[in-house]
Simulated assay, not measured.
Amino acid sequence: MEGGDALALQKQKKTGVWWDLNTCPVPAGVEAGRVVACIESALEKEMGHGCQVYIYAMGNLEYISSDLLEQIGSSGIDVLHAPRRGNDLYHCLREWSEFNPHDVANVMLISCDYTLADPCLFRLVEFTGFIAYPEDHRPLTLDRNDGQTVFVKEFVWETLLNDNMSRGEIVSKYDEPSYTCYICFDSYEACGEFVTHLKSDEHKRELRYMVPKDSEFGKPKHFCQACDYPAYDYHNFLIHTQSEEHNLKNLAEDCESRKRSPQVHLLNERNKMQSVARGK
């Protein structure tokens, strides 16, 4: 192949990157606007040439700050509320494969979620794959290769960012940002409208309709009674119960309970103290 043709082919190369914000958040001290350039630099070093990189930040985004989501969206990254994890990633990969032939495209996953880091998902689309995961959290599913290597290169997420920080200039996107809810399949250009949607009754109704139900009673399998919140699975239930919104709700209910039944509250506190004393 002539040099000019090889260069033209390199310019056609594309890499789709799916970044799980729940298991691989932006580390402390790293500006979200630098992530794009860091990923591009790491891929360029690995492949030996540059390529077009398309990054999709995904996960349960209901409890990620709007400021961070806006920084990510304005840096050239498409933002996807995709709490169904492996199911949503499969949809993304199939869509990517429809528009990008194997000979000019690669894929990369940034996650330690075992439902995402599933070699079977990536075998279905047959792309050259890369993966990054947090330090000390290598997904066990990567060992299920059945003699077939799916990810040709593994990165440690924090190391990838640190090693490429010199190339990690702040990136601003000139196109309109894109924020999409994979529960309702609504898209927004303004982060504020997207966040408002995620907190809306309409969104919660759609989520309630979609979540797995108990076969006997038809109720959501993973449900927070205090917040009236239906979670798609246990992973999302934990994300909810660790959120500030949930903790504030519990605190408010606890305060109200103390007002209604102060004697019961004092009795509970006394029982807790006695239990602690017996445990010493």
Score class of each variant (00 low, 15 high):
residue 85 R to M: 14
residue 38 C to Q: 04
residue 168 G to C: 05
residue 88 D to V: 05
residue 29 G to N: 11
residue 11 K to F: 06
residue 245 E to N: 02
residue 98 E to Q: 14
residue 123 R to T: 06
residue 112 C to I: 04
residue 29 G to I: 10
residue 65 S to H: 13
residue 204 K to C: 07
residue 181 C to W: 05
residue 280 K to F: 12
residue 94 R to I: 07
residue 164 N to T: 03
residue 105 A to T: 13
residue 10 Q to W: 06
residue 225 Q to R: 15
residue 133 Y to T: 09
residue 246 H to L: 02
residue 115 T to C: 02
residue 190 A to L: 14
residue 75 S to V: 14
residue 280 K to S: 11
residue 42 A to D: 04
residue 250 N to W: 10
residue 19 W to S: 07
residue 275 S to M: 11
residue 144 R to P: 00
residue 96 W to H: 14
residue 84 R to C: 05
residue 259 K to R: 14
residue 192 G to V: 12
residue 11 K to A: 15
residue 278 R to L: 15
residue 156 V to L: 06
residue 148 Q to R: 02
residue 240 H to D: 03
residue 168 G to M: 06
residue 34 R to Y: 07
residue 2 E to L: 04
residue 127 F to C: 01
residue 225 Q to T: 13
residue 141 T to P: 01
residue 222 H to M: 10
residue 199 K to Q: 13
residue 66 S to H: 01
residue 115 T to M: 05
residue 96 W to D: 03
residue 263 Q to P: 00
residue 5 D to E: 12
residue 180 T to Y: 07
residue 118 D to E: 09
residue 37 A to P: 00
residue 196 T to Q: 02
residue 49 H to Y: 13
residue 244 E to F: 02
residue 29 G to S: 06
residue 231 A to T: 12
residue 73 G to W: 04
residue 75 S to W: 13
residue 137 H to D: 12
residue 179 Y to C: 07
residue 37 A to N: 13
residue 118 D to K: 07
residue 207 L to I: 11
residue 213 K to E: 14
residue 211 V to R: 01
residue 69 L to V: 07
residue 47 M to C: 06
residue 19 W to I: 05
residue 105 A to Y: 05
residue 128 T to C: 09
residue 123 R to K: 14
residue 12 Q to W: 10
residue 48 G to D: 06
residue 161 L to D: 05
residue 279 G to W: 06
residue 14 K to A: 15
residue 32 A to D: 11
residue 10 Q to R: 13
residue 79 V to L: 06
residue 227 C to V: 11
residue 144 R to Q: 12
residue 9 L to M: 12
residue 157 W to T: 01
residue 82 A to V: 08
residue 200 S to T: 08
residue 125 V to L: 12
residue 90 Y to K: 14
residue 10 Q to D: 09
residue 37 A to C: 08
residue 152 V to P: 00
residue 234 Y to A: 05
residue 226 A to L: 12
residue 58 M to S: 08
residue 58 M to G: 03
residue 157 W to M: 01
residue 193 E to Y: 07
residue 66 S to I: 11
residue 186 D to P: 00
residue 67 D to M: 03
residue 65 S to F: 08
residue 89 L to F: 12
residue 172 S to G: 08
residue 152 V to L: 02
residue 126 E to V: 11
residue 33 G to P: 02
residue 28 A to W: 04
residue 234 Y to E: 08
residue 159 T to R: 11
residue 27 P to C: 09
residue 72 I to C: 03
residue 183 I to H: 01
residue 168 G to A: 08
residue 211 V to Y: 03
residue 273 M to Y: 09
residue 122 F to A: 04
residue 196 T to D: 02
residue 65 S to A: 08
residue 241 T to A: 02
residue 268 N to W: 13
residue 184 C to Q: 05
residue 55 I to Y: 03
residue 32 A to G: 06
residue 186 D to K: 05
residue 70 E to Q: 07
residue 34 R to G: 09
residue 80 L to S: 01
residue 159 T to L: 12
residue 132 A to W: 07
residue 106 N to D: 14
residue 280 K to I: 14
residue 66 S to M: 13
residue 158 E to P: 13
residue 42 A to S: 08
residue 70 E to P: 00
residue 78 D to E: 12
residue 206 E to R: 09
residue 271 N to G: 01
residue 270 R to L: 15
residue 58 M to P: 00
residue 278 R to D: 15
residue 263 Q to A: 13
residue 277 A to P: 10
residue 226 A to Q: 09
residue 252 A to R: 10
residue 249 K to L: 10
residue 149 T to F: 08
residue 172 S to F: 15
residue 31 E to L: 09
residue 96 W to I: 09
residue 7 L to Y: 12
